[in-house]
Amino acid sequence: MNTMRAQEISESPVMANVTYDGTPVYIQKVDSDNNTARIYALDDPDNEVSVPLDQLVEQ
Score class of each variant (00 low, 15 high):
Met1Val: 08
Asn2Val: 04
Thr3Leu: 09
Thr3Pro: 02
Thr3Phe: 07
Met4Cys: 02
Met4Ser: 09
Met4Asn: 08
Met4Phe: 12
Arg5Trp: 00
Arg5Ile: 07
Ala6Cys: 12
Gln7Trp: 06
Gln7Cys: 10
Glu8Asn: 10
Glu8Leu: 12
Glu8Cys: 09
Ile9Glu: 00
Ile9Lys: 01
Ser10His: 04
Glu11Cys: 11
Glu11Arg: 15
Ser12Leu: 03
Pro13Thr: 10
Pro13Lys: 08
Pro13Asp: 06
Pro13Met: 03
Val14Cys: 01
Val14Tyr: 07
Val14Ile: 11
Met15Gln: 10
Ala16Pro: 01
Ala16Lys: 09
Ala16Trp: 09
Asn17Gly: 00
Asn17Gln: 09
Asn17Ala: 05
Val18Asp: 00
Val18Lys: 00
Val18His: 02
Thr19Pro: 00
Asp21Ala: 13
Asp21Trp: 02
Asp21Thr: 06
Thr23Ile: 14
Pro24Asp: 05
Pro24Cys: 01
Pro24Phe: 04
Pro24Lys: 07
Pro24Gln: 07
Val25Asn: 03
Tyr26Leu: 06
Tyr26Ile: 12
Ile27Asp: 00
Ile27Ser: 05
Ile27Asn: 01
Gln28Lys: 14
Val30Asp: 00
Val30Phe: 04
Ser32Cys: 12
Ser32Phe: 11
Asp33Val: 04
Asp33Ile: 05
Asp33Gly: 15
Asn34Cys: 09
Asn34Gly: 06
Asn34His: 13
Asn35Met: 13
Asn35Phe: 13
Ala37Trp: 02
Ala37Gly: 10
Arg38Trp: 08
Ile39Asn: 05
Ile39Glu: 01
Ile39Lys: 05
Tyr40Arg: 06
Tyr40Glu: 01
Ala41Tyr: 06
Ala41His: 06
Ala41Leu: 02
Ala41Gly: 03
Asp43Met: 08
Asp44Gln: 13
Asp44Met: 08
Asp44Thr: 12
Pro45Gln: 04
Asp46Ile: 07
Asp46Lys: 15
Asp46Trp: 10
Asn47Tyr: 14
Asn47Cys: 09
Glu48Tyr: 10
Glu48Trp: 06
Glu48Ala: 14
Glu48Asp: 11
Val49Asn: 12
Val49His: 10
Val51Ala: 03
Val51Met: 04
Val51Arg: 05
Val51Leu: 02
Val51Asp: 01
Pro52Tyr: 07
Asp54Phe: 15
Asp54Gly: 03
Gln55Trp: 09
Leu56Trp: 03
Leu56Ala: 04
Leu56Glu: 00
Val57Gln: 13
Glu58Asn: 05
